[in-house]
Design a protein around this nucleic acid. Structure first.
Lengths: 345, 345
DNA sequence: GCAAATAATGTACACGATAACATTAAAAAA
DNA sequence: TTTTTTAATGTTATCGTGTACATTATTTGC
């Protein structure tokens, strides 16, 4: 009985390559390559021997070397946009990114996650130099980054933003419908003076949500006074300050519709400080359903946005694009859902 | 004046390689390589010509091909542990990961982010096959994953967990001190019946926090009854249920110290439902200072844990390790800070 | 003005894989 | 049996880069 002694030479698993396996198995490296990748059928005996050796020698394929030849790295890039005035990633984006990471992992893709400032292109460079097979852009503004990938023919999927070109698919929430239903619900609850807190109209989702608000109020015959429509960065602070300022004027609204949960929570704080009760004195509704929404006391009613679903879909579409398919659905609008909790009935 | 016409041939920037630049510049590829990497001094004229061409031709270095040769990918792996019973990443981990990503980016490193289930080793394989230069393990349990990297001689830094071996550095919060101070503060506020909500003692941070609680109560001569010490998964639900059950027994505590903010928030909900007032009837303190803590109404007093700092430090130490240094600080304990907000005075 | 030293560039191989093509061995058809 | 087909494996070129070594051009020393 012969014991193959490889311990000495293969003590450092870092160095085990296909050549080592080939030598040990007494075949050519090509055979090893084919067996391991399953690209061709081989004699069962040879196959088993190679597989066993690869296992024993603790072989780890060098995905980089492979990528140099195949032009497929098995990696994607995820760029998530960050407002310059914020610290940390938007709460809305986190579940989206998580879902992308999970879905990518299931499909044996690695993911580079990057945050993007205002007008950074180095971000794109990083990914291009690393030869990602595809890219998901979350909430990015401007088209310069997008172009960088297009000229390199790297597939891109847009998340939470739209594109003009049908060759770059996008996924968005049904912002309009969500707000439309939410506001109608509030009006049906009997409210007339509804404070609307919106994000800057220069961003798409912000605009759409505002349009939903306009549609609902118009349809139900409401003519909101200007002081009841406030815009600002979609932050806690905006929600707090705008609400506080209205309340201190003494001209109370009976409800607040905030275009984002963070603004809604800011509003809750302002109302709390004024000594008014939620929902008895003022009802509140937000949008997004971020993690904190359900934790609030009283729990924040909001428009649920399917964030995980958005992430999953983003990867799936990107995956099809990377596989060379061109018949992907270019426009994807995910339905929202009214989540009535405690801040309104 | 001669206009070099390259548009036709170089129309596809995907294909521009060092060879193309060399040909266009009339030099050898080696020269291009040296100029671009700055590894050797060249004639200024040649240098400028090559640099200019690289720019014009929109050259992008193939980091993969380079890595095959140099054995350095410029990528790191981040594995963040996820409890099997949770959906989504722990709120505590998110700012840590963000900080790592940012710091890595500043140092021109790419980062693969992976979540890790209970006993998954495929996670390690993914990173090893991609030849990461180093790995950061966040809150991982067990040593099997760690060993995988060690036998490959890949530097590892542990976050929110300790190691036995001095060659693998770790970074943790000062759990003991944090709870110790927090609990003492509560006792000094005049409380005797303090409900302690702890995580499972099998995890290090959980144990240390519990020890801090024991130390504080013992020092101040408190002998807490068994019903006032409750353990369970560190979740909202645990906090809610344990508190609810104690409250419904009628034997109210006058304060709650939760070993995590999520449990604290669960407790807040239970107290709210019982109709008691925070902090008038019951004071509450949490630990971690997750994003939601400051958003709560009333705002949750808690022990602030320097999450961003932890992430930054983790990368910095890993970076030294990857640079071959061995004199890194192996044990890093970050100080916490008492954050008194509204749920206790 | 010539030898020696040095600066600038070129040549050839390696890294670890894949794949087109060539070859050998085994099975099927004649 | 001989020929043809097919299955199994080997040879060799290639991907885009880095680098040791060789070579040529330029400067310095005297």
């Amino acid at each position: 009985m012969t014991v193959i002694e490889y311990s000495a030479e293969w003590s450092n698993p870092m160095k085990v390559t296909m050549n080592d396996i080939a030598k040990a198995a007494g075949v050519s490296r090509t055979t090893v390559s084919r067996v391991l990748s399953g690209k061709a059928v081989h004699q069962e005996e040879t196959r088993q021997r190679i597989l066993k050796l690869a296992e024993e020698m603790n072989y780890s394929p060098d995905l980089l070397a492979r990528a140099v030849k195949t032009k497929k790295t098995g990696n994607i890039g995820v760029i998530v946009h960050n407002e310059h005035d914020r610290q940390g990633v938007n709460s809305l984006h986190i579940p989206i990114v998580e879902a992308i990471l999970e879905e990518a992992k299931q499909n044996n893709y690695g993911s580079f996650v990057l945050t993007d400032g205002e007008t950074e292109t180095p971000t794109a460079r990083t990914l291009i130099d690393r030869r990602v097979d595809g890219v998901i852009l979350i909430s990015t503004v401007g088209t310069s980054v997008l172009r960088r990938f297009q000229e390199r023919q790297i597939p891109v999927v847009l998340v939470n933003n739209v594109s003009n070109h049908p060759e770059v698919p996008y996924i968005v929430f049904d912002e309009f419908q969500g707000v439309y239903e939410g506001v109608k619900r509030i009006i049906h609850n009997g409210h007339q003076r509804i404070l609307y807190l919106g994000g800057p109209l220069t961003v798409r989702w912000s605009l759409k949500r505002y349009e939903g608000y306009i549609a609902a109020t118009t349809e139900l015959g409401l003519k909101p006074e200007p002081e009841l429509i406030q815009f600002g960065p979609s932050t806690y602070l905006t929600g707090y300050e705008k609400t506080k300022s209205l309340l201190s004027s003494g001209r109370f609204p009976s409800a607040v519709f905030a275009a984002s949960d963070m603004m809604a929570i800011g509003a809750m704080r302002a109302i709390y400080e004024t000594g008014l009760k939620i929902p008895d004195d003022i009802e509140i509704m937000g949008f997004d359903d971020i993690e904190a929404a359900a934790l609030m006391i009283p729990a924040l009613s909001t428009i649920y946005a399917p964030k995980a679903e958005m992430g999953v879909k983003a990867f799936q579409i990107l995956n099809e694009l990377m596989a060379g398919r061109t018949d992907v659905s270019a426009e994807n609008v995910l339905p929202t859902k009214l989540m009535i909790r405690e801040t309104c009935k």
